[in-house]
Amino acid sequence: MATGQTSTPEQIGSSGDTLREAFGRALVRLAKDGRDFVVFDADVAGGTGVHRFRAAHPDRFYQFGIAEQNMVAAAGGFAATGIPVFATTFAVFMLRALEQARLSVAYAKRDVKLVASHPGLDVGPDGGSAQCLEDLAAFRAIPGMVVVAPADPYETELATAAILEYQGPVYMRTGRSPSRRLFEPGHRFELGRGQILREGPDVSLIACGVEVARALDAADILATEGIGARVVNMPTIKPLDRELIVECAEKTGCFVTAEDHNIHGGLGAAVAECLAELAPSPVEFIGVRDSFGESGEPEELAEKYRLTAPHIVQAAKAAIVRKVLRK
């Protein structure tokens, strides 16, 4: 795996900032830095953040209309001529082009970055049809596809640069709703590597995307009860940082995974696969339990579908009990 880039974004995510807007800013900055690439959109430039790039570089922006299958296969063909392509839409509609991503992008080994906004319950009021809870599982199953889910706007900017640096097919989900700022300048992003955000001996909380902030909140609550939780941000779901997960197993002996995604096939499943093979340990899964979402505000939905900090706390305690009973 190629290592990520190290330059510092000029603009930093602030309160009210979103991952999708951070992605759009990163594209503009990368172009300013002289990086050669084009951006494809399927009629949702205002939603995915790429409207910024369209305004700055109209000659490098191609509008494909509401025709995602054609857009993604055409991205493969365009990249074959030597220029990387960011093909962008909402996560549910990227699923529509899953087979194009498989054949014309991944199988053909094209330098295409599929970047999708509006993942998970974080989409909110648009409801179940728009809340993509399957993308990590679907794209992770494609051979050779790198899968990325950054946690805050700043990390999204770093991740955008890193996936462009990496030559090959990538799927990255951003986010719709305003995101808490978690990282400061100096934070590093390296494809294929997780980061320990907080140390603790009793349980490892491994999260991606919006769930990283909730895992940090959960660690705060656990600390008040005398439980030390290690919090790991895992922005690359594939290839997974197996080394770090095994080290977590050695240090803490049990896990909670947390993601705004179906519990099947996403980060939790990836971590569990790793542990089952290398370091069997109790794992509790925070995620949507094999259902679709519904309309509501993101925080209301997170509470209803048990993705919030108190639910992570409960899961952490359950994992610790299972660990103790095993001994």
Partner: peptide
């Protein structure tokens, strides 16, 4: 390019022409 799923080769060719 890799083909075998109908429709995709046409889109890929279009992408090549655009590129």
């Amino acid at each position: 390019t890799s083909t075998g799923s109908l429709g995709q080769g046409f889109s890929a060719a279009l992408g090549m022409a655009l590129g």
